[in-house]
Simulated scan of single mutants.
Amino acid sequence: MLTSGATLAMARKFSASGFWRDIRASGATAFVYIGELCRYLLNQPPGPHDRDHRVRVVIGNGLRPEIWDEFQQRFGIAHICEFYGSSEGNLVFINAFGLPRTAGFTPLPYAIVAFDTANERPVRDARGFMRRVAVGEAGLLITEVDAGHPFDGYTDAEATEAKLLHDVFKKGDVWINSGDLVRSQGLRHIAFVDRVGDTFRWKGENVATTEVERAIGAVKGVAQASVYGVAVAHSDGRAGMAAVVLHPGAAFDGRAMAQDLCRALPVYAVPIFVRIIKAQETTGTFKLRKVELKQQGFDPAFIDEPLFVLLDRDHGYQPLTRAIHRRILAGTVRW
């Protein structure tokens, strides 16, 4: 910026309602986004000044595919430059070609390998090596470490070693474990799928929370959704649960939501439980916080907010009462 003679404007804090006013006041032609920031802007009521700005490009990471087109069209953004990277990593993907719904391209060495979600580790074959996934498949993103692409690591030697994978494709090679599941889009492009630990296994299948969140976000009346897995007595894996924020004035329609999700998702990916919350907790970088939600589970005795359960797909989501909760704990409810 300094060498190009550009100006940087910074607001004291983020405000979804005042964001475009600040953009117009500064005359900005670009801005940086992160996490759920774009969704917060999109959730604001449409207005006549949505395109009254000079912004021609935005750059950042975390723009969800399900809102990409709507965000770009509503606010008239010519170029969305999504990227993927980390401060300690040795590569970055960037949407240099302006393609929709992608974290971008990199010329640097990487691989996407098969991943065991249940045990949270890469899959190794009989020889002890990992396997690359095909285009369109999701897997663990790893990046090669060599003289041209070093990994400086952390101040903690144990943390540095824990980040590395050895003997990945051949004896002696070393790769960085990104901790992220991505989908190969071909032509060296990727799409972010989930953070390792967020994806869970149910009915013998891997459930990517971002894909379920995308489907729920398309349901009428839903402003935002956070999906996670919860342990259920007498069941293998984790059942899907969604914490849902509704648009102001919208009412939860359990039957309509069940119908929409059953059409949009595989049977195993449809959430069993729904919790209606007032707002989503986010981190300092506008990423959804799920740790507390996972810990709280689905016990109506300890959760004051409305809880629903899917016992019958034709009937839809119904209130999760303490009596139903006792039946679930006793193992008399089967999905």
Rank of each mutant, 00 (worst) to 15 (best):
S87Q: 05
E66H: 06
L108P: 11
V92G: 11
F19R: 09
V57E: 11
L141T: 09
D253E: 11
G139M: 03
A96K: 07
L91K: 05
I142H: 01
D198I: 00
V230R: 09
A78R: 07
C262S: 13
T321R: 07
T3G: 04
I94R: 12
G60V: 00
Y33A: 11
V227Q: 03
D314S: 03
G76V: 14
G204F: 03
V244M: 13
P266A: 08
D156F: 05
A250E: 15
R313Q: 09
T283W: 00
C38Y: 14
R183N: 06
I324Q: 05
D253M: 03
R39D: 05
R263E: 09
I77W: 14
T155F: 00
R21D: 15
G76N: 10
R263S: 05
V133E: 13
V145E: 15
L310P: 06
V193M: 05
A134W: 11
H189P: 14
R21E: 02
A159E: 13
A242N: 03
D22C: 09
Q318G: 00
G331S: 09
L42H: 08
D180N: 06
F252W: 13
S86I: 03
N177R: 01
F286C: 05
A103R: 08
A301G: 12
N177L: 02
P109L: 13
V267Q: 15
Y110E: 06
A28Y: 12
A191S: 06
V333P: 11
A138L: 01
G217E: 14
S87C: 12
V123Q: 13
A250V: 15
I34Q: 12
H79W: 15
P107E: 12
V193D: 14
S178N: 02
L91M: 12
N90I: 00
G297V: 01
L165H: 07
S87G: 14
H79G: 02
F75M: 03
H325A: 10
F273P: 07
T321Y: 14
P319I: 15
D312F: 01
T102G: 08
P46K: 04
D146C: 08
E281D: 04
L181N: 06
V182P: 04
T160C: 02
R263V: 04
P271N: 08
R275L: 14
T209N: 07
E281Y: 12
W335Y: 12
H79V: 05
Y84S: 06
L37T: 15
Q72A: 09
C262I: 11
A25R: 11
I276K: 08
G18M: 05
F115I: 01
N61E: 06
W335Q: 06
V219K: 04
E161W: 09
